[in-house]
Design a protein around this nucleic acid. Sequence first.
DNA 1: TATTAGATACTAAATACTTAATACTTCGTA
DNA 2: TACGAAGTATTAAGTATTTAGTATCTAATA
Lengths: 124, 124
Amino acid sequence: MTVHLTNRELDVIAVLWETGSATVSEVRAAVGDGLAYTTILSVLRGLELKQYVRHESEGKAHRFFPTIQPSDAEDKSLGRVLDKLYQGSRELLITRLVSEKELSRTELERIRAIIDERLGEADK
Amino acid sequence: MTVHLTNRELDVIAVLWETGSATVSEVRAAVGDGLAYTTILSVLRGLELKQYVRHESEGKAHRFFPTIQPSDAEDKSLGRVLDKLYQGSRELLITRLVSEKELSRTELERIRAIIDERLGEADK
DNA sequence: TATTAGATACTAAATACTTAATACTTCGTA
DNA sequence: TACGAAGTATTAAGTATTTAGTATCTAATA
């Protein structure tokens, strides 16, 4: 599946990913930006047309659920960043991320544990 | 500096980052996609207007040079991917990247070395 | 210096994305 | 059951992005 999301669509579906599901009003509150109710509705309908979300009735409103996961969108978004900004090198990107100040000691240790695990596997 | 690049602009300037500099024809060949010569020229002129590239004369043609670096564009592009697709968690993104098959043992080891270095620093 | 291939400048059409107005519908409740 | 608040459907305007046509310019060369 090749998923393409516009910026605004990503804003909107990200709310659904975080909350699991949401009504138009809830998405609107979460996205902020002073957008009109109908604007959020339009975006959700577009997403539904593409079958990236679905809805169920809840009273007179709709409750929307994502039908794709973040991982489905990663390929395209991350892949592009990777190709164009890091010459396609995962190592380079990881190196940059690891070098950033935002990571705590604990996080670094957890990451190292994952790497160790991967290296261990390869031994078999 | 806040850098905003459209998709096509990113395609184009990525060529300049890779090659150091290029003429319109060279960029066109690298980008592919069957775009007209004048299309690439337009994009380059747009980039020049924003001062993300500059040019020098070379015969009757122009040779274009990037004036911004990949790192200048990272914040926005990567930040967005991070926020929306990984809930802003660098750890989560790194974990996903590290778990991918594409990484060789050698790369994993180099990454671990960088983590160890970072952890060492923190000890001081 | 007249020609011409190859290049740029200018302009604008086509497409994609974002936003929201207006009309219509639904459901609780007076 | 008539009303109103809250919701949805339809439609389209506004904006940004992508693409390229046409006119013009430049520099090598016959």
